[in-house]
């Protein structure tokens, strides 16, 4: 199911709480990767919390690491 890029979803996004979220993502204020696509930053996979996200729950997303290139 597609995730609309709307303020409500961005505000509920938990990407910044994730152990994989890094300074590069933070400096660019990147989030909502499940809607906006992968990150432009270099990523070390340090775990994924997409399965706990209320956005993923609402849109019935089953995958992990939406941020990963």
């Amino acid at each position: 199911m597609n995730v609309p890029d709307i303020p409500e979803n961005a505000s509920r996004c938990i990407c910044p709480n994730c152990p994989t979220y890094n300074d590069c993502m933070s400096s660019d204020k990147q989030n909502l990767f499940c809607s906006r696509g992968k990150s432009s930053c270099k990523i070390d996979s340090n775990g994924c919390i997409c399965g706990e996200c209320p956005v993923a729950d609402q849109y019935r997303l089953n995958n992990l690491y939406y941020c990963e290139p």
Binding site: I14, P16, N17, C18, P19, I49, E52, C53
Partner: peptide, 10 residues
């Protein structure tokens, strides 16, 4: 120091 991030690292 814990970071109180729920869900996530907290």
């Amino acid at each position: 120091e814990p970071d109180h991030k729920f869900p996530g690292t907290g």
